[in-house]
Write a protein that binds this DNA or RNA. Sequence first.
DNA 1: GGGCCGCGCACAC
DNA 2: GTGTGCGCGGCCC
Length: 290
Amino acid sequence: MTIVATLKSDITPDGADYETVRRVIEMITDDYRDQPSLDDIAARLKQAPSQLQKTFTRWAGLSPKAFLQAVTLDHAKRLLRQESMPLLETSIEVGLSGPSRLHDLFVTHEAMSPGEWKARGEGLTIRWGFHGSPFGRALVMVTERGLAGLAFSDEADGRACFEDMACRWPNAEYVEDREATAAYAARIFDPSRWNAEEPLRIVLIGSDFQVRVWEALLRIPMGKAVTYSDIAGQLGQPKASRAVGAAVGRNPLSFVVPCHRALGKGGALTGYHWGLTRKRAMLGWEAGRA
DNA sequence: GGGCCGCGCACAC
DNA sequence: GTGTGCGCGGCCC
């Protein structure tokens, strides 16, 4: 089986920008001690500063400087403060069990039964493919019941990314099928195609606890954030924040189930399965669109 | 059942 | 700021 699919064209015009953006975010956050200027960064990327600025702004909807402000601690604290708890609580009535869930990308979800979860994917056919996305190469996995997996990889490391996902449901049958996954990818990453009439169908495959945590994440609106302990409290297990963190980290639908909107209590980003740089990228990208 | 790990947190110094 | 211990669910014996 060949894992690495070559990309003829990015499905979003933003796709090609991510590599540039990723390196900018990395430089600014890794080398925060000597706060590199746009000119410094452009020089290191061998680009004209004005062009870099343009690329970045096209991708983020925000200038590099504004983007940076959007992912600082101060800003994160503000995201948390404004009505983060009410967000989680009111939405319980809106209907965990009901079919329509919102993200700004509207989603209907179903969870696998405990039996199906234990079978570790037995009897499931999973079609998969890599596609360009605003956050690097995206691995999309679908079943006939809807989207089951979404993951990201930098550059050529698609194999590790695929393994990371496939080992979660080791008994499933995997079929490379970019035609089947392309439509999902195109929709997920294009906000203009998000609408309530045709929600995206997703299927959550996980333990009972994990599914409850992921459902809580689905209730956080775009441009908002909650803490791990908020979620623990909402599940009625206020001391389980660390268990929540572990479950968030196992979220199989990165971005669609917005685990990047879960932050530490102090506003620190604390962690991300697909890399903190990507978490910053998602939060900043959303800040430019919220 | 036992033991370890993880996208946490609070408290200490 | 760094260290440390508590706490939890998941997972592998």
